[in-house]
Amino acid sequence: MADIPLSPRSTSAARRRLPPPPALCGFLLLLALLFTVSYAVGSAAGPVAPGMHGTGRTGDSGGNGGGMDDMPGMSQGSGG
């Protein structure tokens, strides 16, 4: 079969890009706003546990590594 050439009208319509629907833009804006507000509330609330430290602490050589020693009532032996 021979190739049928496309008319210029159909090729320019195929090259045109449609803008995203307004509902999608509104949803993405709302999502970004919710993440921003939740981050601000979490930063204001602080850590969720008394012994938690941020990742910015460096050079801490105090023996508290946060292992099984920090959990009262838990033994490291083979229960049995």
Rank of each mutant, 00 (worst) to 15 (best):
P20Q: 07
A40Y: 11
G26P: 00
A44K: 13
A40L: 13
L33S: 05
P50H: 06
P21A: 15
P20T: 01
A45R: 07
S38I: 06
A23Y: 05
P20D: 04
F27T: 00
P22R: 14
A45M: 05
V37R: 10
V41H: 11
C25Y: 06
L33C: 06
A40P: 05
G51T: 07
L30D: 02
F35P: 03
G26K: 06
C25A: 15
S43L: 09
L24C: 01
A49H: 04
A40W: 11
L18I: 03
P19V: 00
P21K: 13
A45D: 03
L18P: 00
L30E: 03
G51F: 03
L24H: 02
L31G: 02
L18N: 06
V48K: 04
P47R: 06
A45Y: 05
L31M: 07
L31T: 07
S43R: 12
V41W: 11
A23Q: 09
F35C: 15
A40H: 09
G46Y: 08
A49P: 00
A40K: 10
P21V: 02
P47C: 05
P47Y: 15
V37I: 14
G46L: 11
G51V: 03
G46N: 04
A45Q: 07
L28R: 07
S43M: 04
P47T: 03
P19R: 01
V41N: 08
L34Q: 08
V41G: 10
A23R: 08
L28I: 02
S38R: 14
L30I: 02
V41F: 14
A23N: 09
L29S: 10
G26N: 13
P21M: 06
Y39F: 10
S38N: 14
A23C: 08
L30R: 05
L28G: 12
A44T: 09
L31A: 11
L33D: 04
F35S: 13
P50Y: 13
V41L: 10
V48W: 07
A40V: 15
V48E: 03
A44I: 12
V37L: 14
L33N: 06
A23D: 11
A23I: 04
G51M: 03
G42L: 01
P47K: 10
A45V: 08
P19F: 00
Y39G: 09
Y39P: 00
P19S: 04
L34H: 11
L31D: 10
